[in-house]
Amino acid sequence: MAGEVSRMRRIVVSEFVSLDGVMQAPGGREEDASGSFKHGGWSFKFRDDQVPKYKLDELAASDALLLGRKTYEIFAAYWPKAKDDAGFADKMNNLAKHVVSTTLKKADWNNSKLIRTNVADEVRKLKQQPGKDILVYGSAKLVNTLLQHDLVDELRLMVHPVVLGSGRRLFDDHAEMLKPLKLAESKTFPSGIVLLSYHQAK
């Protein structure tokens, strides 16, 4: 649009986490039962009508997904068959997907591309292209890589009011990093979920 200031595309990491930082299988047991995780689907205990609205707006501000292999496989098994009145599934299926994996042979979900090597460089290239936000859901390993390389422009945590006690955590426990962030927004949902949103500290 004429007059609009061009800016680089942003990488937006958006996660459902428990109070103890677990991000494994928020949407259902079948997503990921590794490590004998028995709380699959935990996020559904805390839904309210504002959360789907928020997630839909978030998706509307994006035109690509950047995913790790595990989350990609979970999504690719679910979304092509999904349908909803709000159009969330259609949007998920139509978005461009960038999948980071050294092992995946092919990525069949509509509009998918593989990133096999030089993750940081490839993500930097994506950011140079014109477009809207690039969304990262789940993908804990990838998120830690992106954080290490200062490639996360916004980190959104939907903190659920529950301590799970087990499961894959979003953040590596033994990472060599100390990253101060800048609080961009905090918002409380009726279900007791708190959105904490951070930008990179300049």
């Binding site: 109070l19 205990k45 009011p161 087990s166 007791g192 708190v194």
Partner: peptide, 9 residues
């Protein structure tokens, strides 16, 4: 934590 614990905000 031995079990899942739901809290209230």
């Amino acid at each position: 934590q031995s079990e899942m614990r739901r809290l209230e905000l």
